[in-house]
Amino acid sequence: MDTETAIERFIVDEIMLGDSSTKLDPNESLISTGVLDSLALLRLIAFIEEQFGVMIEDSEVIPENFETINEIKEFIEQKKS
């Protein structure tokens, strides 16, 4: 599974508790649509750290890195490289 799909699946399955056929627009804000609240964000961070073997610093938990699926993907890829 590629990075984008893994993030999307986690958000749809574990946070939105949605139908597995739900598709998210990778460029749509996860915050203003109410998908990510403060607790969901913590769960997403824990998932990313475990799934991709990266450590996320507190100072990296900012909208620029977590607002959309695309931004999360780019952030993870930059962390891994």
Binding site: I31, D37, S38, D58, S59, V61, I62, P63
Partner: peptide, 9 residues
């Protein structure tokens, strides 16, 4: 609301 999710912000 966008900002209230991010403690550091």
């Amino acid at each position: 609301e966008k900002l209230s999710v991010f403690p550091i912000r």
